[in-house]
Amino acid sequence: MAQLIDAIVYAIPYLMSGLGMTLLVSLIVVVLSLVAGVVLGVGLIYGPLSLRWLIRLLTDSIRGIPILVLIFAVYYGLPPLGLNLSSFWAAVLALTLFKTAQVIEYTRGAVSSIPRGQMEAAKSIGLIFGQRLRYVIFPQATRRFLPPWVNGVTDAVKGSALVSLLGVVDLMQAINQVIGRTYEPMPLYLLGAVMYFAINYSLSSLSRVLERRYAYIKE
């Protein structure tokens, strides 16, 4: 047992920069996909026909591609088109595209579940489109948006491990590097599991707080 603790303590410093990379990638992907997903989700519901058609095409295509294929497609497929991205940015772009398609779905689901009458009442007191979204629709949609979205965030953290496929050294890769040297996998998988769990548990707790805050809106 003491040996196990020793091995874990030994490994911690090497995992730190990998952990940092995991958090950085997750953060960028979550933030970018949130902004892009909500904007495109609103476009999907309220936009003109051509825009709605385009966004639908985009999300269906992306959600139909396995994320592994997406990562390699972005990394190898873009340079011939003139866009040469580093491993880090290629991985982030691929993950962001994938997550954005999901966020568009969450947004669509949350907003379209709001009764039509809300939009009509908002129109009838003279609010313009942006105001209607901001003061009437979004506050109500957020409650329905949060649970699947937070789930998605924890998925994004777990999924960020895929950046190692492009050689980016995240927590997963850092773990493998230490194992590659010491040949002792158990303590490291344990430590890795604890670290991923810690990240996702804090996220889930945060989500519970957020959900409670919006719970007063009765259906």
Binding site: Q177, I179, G180, R181
Partner: peptide, 11 residues
């Protein structure tokens, strides 16, 4: 790579 001693790994 960076995960396989003794071929390519981090010291």
């Amino acid at each position: 790579g960076s995960t396989n001693a003794p071929w390519h790994f981090e010291d």
